[in-house]
Nucleic acid binder design. Sequence first.
DNA 1: TATATGCGCAAACAATCACTTGCGCAAATT
DNA 2: AATTTGCGCAAGTGATTGTTTGCGCATATA
Lengths: 106, 106
Amino acid sequence: MRRDVYQGIADPTRRAIIALLALQAMTPNAMAEHFNISRQGVSNHIKILTECELVKQEHQGREIYYTLEIKKLKEIDKWLEQYRAIWESQFNKLDKVLSNLKKQKK
Amino acid sequence: MRRDVYQGIADPTRRAIIALLALQAMTPNAMAEHFNISRQGVSNHIKILTECELVKQEHQGREIYYTLEIKKLKEIDKWLEQYRAIWESQFNKLDKVLSNLKKQKK
DNA sequence: TATATGCGCAAACAATCACTTGCGCAAATT
DNA sequence: AATTTGCGCAAGTGATTGTTTGCGCATATA
């Protein structure tokens, strides 16, 4: 069983949960109200998110508030970094082509 | 069958393929040499990457060169954007705490 | 103390996954 | 013309997924 950030964000419902938790900490029941799946379905996703360390829990009485571990998302950002350089240089190339076309028009 | 970028990058072998193709276009056979799985195993991944539009093909005789569609990775970057704002503000808060501690020491 | 509520665990399900092996087609080499 | 090479397609395998329903344990309310 693979448990990493990439796996964590692979499912659309999990990305929706992440979006919710970015706004505020929430209990599983509160999250479930936003989706068409059962409370337990949501809990299963939370379990995976917890295992990926994308989410942490805060017990409060019998309720459990889940919070987003935003720094885990930084991992993806770091992975993207190596490719950002490439697409930026590609954009610059395109930019050059365009400005050359402009010059030719003149 | 879900076919989006997030699914595309969910598998470690596929991320490795992406890394290879970032350096240069390659045939499936060439890629397979880098991994411990069969040529067909690699081809299965390529198929998924193609369906996610993370990869495009260029036929050249009987060989097929695959190239990385870097702009598709930008989609992830765009998704991350909303969270970047959050972790940056969190970092600034931490920064404040640290500089306050420093002041107190003085 | 009895009952209701919030939650995780466990088991079950079909669907999808990552792989493999075997095949056949088309391009290249002999 | 015969053989080799590069590739995708198809079918098969066991493992993992997303989901559900039923359970039991705590905490809260009556």
